[in-house]
Design a protein around this nucleic acid. Structure first.
Lengths: 189, 189
DNA sequence: AAAAAACGTTGCTCTATGTCAACGTTTTCT
DNA sequence: AGAAAACGTTGACATAGAGCAACGTTTTTT
């Protein structure tokens, strides 16, 4: 059950078996259906999720009813609605699994306890933040000032899983283009 | 010289005078002119900057010669080309002051030494990362799926300093719209 | 102080892409 | 399994905003 998580942690930090066990014991398994909402718009986020299997999406819905996808996370990575998790304010976004998934959930309290008590976990958190920050920056970059075709190419290059695993509609809302435009672009490569 | 920095640190963490002094002693003052390049495209970034006075911009130049502004930082905040700073790869972006500025610079070696040796500094770094991550996310959000007018409104609301401190051209390249469009929008509010 | 360069604004034109609609296919629900 | 809903694709049309150019103003350079 914890093998993917253990592998992930070991790939990032040097850690003894005992601490590793201590960390893993804080994670609870959650099996979800497709399109299951993990966090609603006005809820406060109290969990960090590690994806054992499946995929997660962060998104919002604008006034006129359009979804806007902000982030996708796949097997073997951490995800949460970070602003809400950190500041304990309403998320103003949704978190959902987009396929049948198995998630390892850790509560905010346990999470910060581990950060405080296990230096390697603190380091892990720092690395997750660094990575997240870098990815967010790269995305801003990759999309800024580019037209639809360039954005699609960028995603194919930098997040090849995305177009394969995610529906056209969701991918389009991530790219900030309409589903029809994405469909047309894909048909021309 | 260190008063702004000290105030910033104290606002984030509880810290004794000695550690504070130790931290500040690692920062070197750098006075710059307007539009001075701090980091070139293919350089590796080796400094973190705290802005005592002035403003910094992170940007790139695309093949066709257009600048794309990614981030602005003003007095009292930290800034660097983080991906390069972390991974020690060529930055593939520029860092410049956009007005006469006074920066407090800390080398990467000193920075990570402080992170390692002073827990409060590690916490400070975590908070900087969290904040940076949240801002990056909010920006992705704030811009995604919105038209030019909405993006301008978003910036006015969330980064009111920006349109005041930064030239039209730079602001436009940050918003991903043309200078003419920004000019027209501003004239209608 | 004069000359040169960069910038902001505004009008005109054109193009990429959004919107809407129709249709067949896939998925979900009962 | 059959009905209903959601999705992907494609065509026709409409439009926000880019690109270009002209002009006056501000900034930089010499």
């Amino acid at each position: 059950m914890y093998s993917v998580l253990e592998k992930f942690i070991k790939s990032k930090v040097e850690i003894d078996a005992q601490s590793l066990e201590r960390i893993c014991s804080c994670f609870v398994l959650l099996k979800t259906k497709r399109n299951q909402i993990l966090l609603d718009y006005s809820q406060v986020c109290n969990f960090y999720y590690f994806i054992n299997k499946g995929s997660i999406r962060l998104f919002t819905i604008s006034k006129d009813g359009n979804e806007s996808s902000r982030f996708f996370a796949f097997q073997g990575s951490f995800a949460t609605a970070l602003p809400s998790f950190i500041d304990q304010l309403p998320a103003e976004e949704y978190l959902q699994t987009i396929e049948k998934s198995e998630l390892l959930c850790i509560s905010r309290a346990d999470f910060y306890r581990l950060v405080k008590e296990i230096p390697q976990f603190a380091q892990l958190y720092t690395e997750i933040l660094e990575l997240g920050f870098i990815i967010a920056q790269k995305r801003i970059y990759g999309f800024q000032g580019f037209d639809a075709l360039d954005k699609v190419k960028w995603v194919i290059k930098h997040q090849p899983q995305l177009l394969l695993k995610v529906s056209n509609k969701m991918a389009a809302s991530y790219l900030g283009i309409s589903p029809s435009t994405l469909s047309r672009i894909k048909s021309k490569l």
